[in-house]
């Protein structure tokens, strides 16, 4: 429960707090907007004294580093919020996890040193599972990325044919024949103007290998998983 009243909150100045969390498993199907709502409620429940916006409908302001698309999991999400008073970071993380679910897990909290706009890239691990994948599929994928890959990219002004290769900073692929799994490690542009949705890489893999199927959804059949593992700055250093 918040102990200080609205008026008290106005006189003190709030300080920034960054929280790192993961969003995995079935939580990948929860949209960014819905996540914001759940996150706000979890923060309220943790007892954190947050700064509230003024006006008719006061609410705490949550800023996320890089919103995740539906269908993408992550172990490196960052969220900023403005808070009052001294914070016991470990206690906060413990309380957040107590009221959350394991698929929305809080890792650490700290005072941020860098700004979100320094984020330039994000690293993803894309795993495609299919019985139809064959030896050589990893090479086929890496080879495909040596020349332009034109996709129809949705923008505000409509769909545009765009070459996605310039947005790919690095890409490597490995095939595990026993598990029928193709694993692609890639670093994609993630700056506000040049954000590349990792689903386009899945689309490219499909062009190169025919998997995962986009029509047959037989349970236990083809599937893929996209996991965001790291955010990086323009030099390719990990951003925290």
């Amino acid at each position: 429960m918040n102990e200080i009243s609205l008026n008290e909150k106005k006189v003190k100045t709030p300080s920034p707090l960054r929280i790192r969390f993961l969003k995995t498993g079935s939580l990948q199907f929860i949209s960014h907007l819905d996540l914001m709502k759940t996150m706000t409620r979890l923060l309220i429940r943790s007892g954190l004294k947050m700064w509230y916006s003024e006006g008719f409908n006061p609410h705490p302001k949550l800023v996320f580093a890089l919103p995740l698309s539906v269908g993408v999991e992550s172990v490196c999400e960052l969220l900023d919020v403005r808070v009052y008073g001294d914070i016991d970071y470990e206690n906060l993380i413990r309380r957040l996890n107590e009221s959350s679910t394991p698929e929305l897990k809080f890792i650490e909290a700290y005072v941020p040193k860098r700004k979100f706009k320094e984020i330039a890239y994000a690293r993803y691990k894309i795993t495609v599972y299919s019985q139809n994948l064959t030896e050589g599929c990893a090479d086929a994928v890496t080879k495909l990325f040596r020349s332009p890959i034109i996709v129809s990219k949705r923008k505000k002004s409509g769909d545009h044919d765009t070459d996605i290769v310039p947005f790919v900073r690095s890409l490597s692929a490995k095939f595990d024949a026993g598990a029928h799994e193709l694993c692609v490690n890639t670093v994609l542009s993630a700056s506000p103007d040049n954000y590349l949705n990792p689903e386009y890489i899945v689309e490219a893999i499909r062009r190169a290998t025919g998997a995962p199927s986009d029509e047959d959804f037989t349970p236990g059949g083809d599937s893929y998983r996209i996991l965001r593992t790291e955010m990086l700055d323009s030099k390719g250093q990990m951003f925290k």
Partner: peptide, 10 residues
């Protein structure tokens, strides 16, 4: 709205 089906709510 796949979130309709996945459950696991708090």
């Amino acid at each position: 709205k796949p979130g309709r089906y996945t459950g696991g709510e708090i």
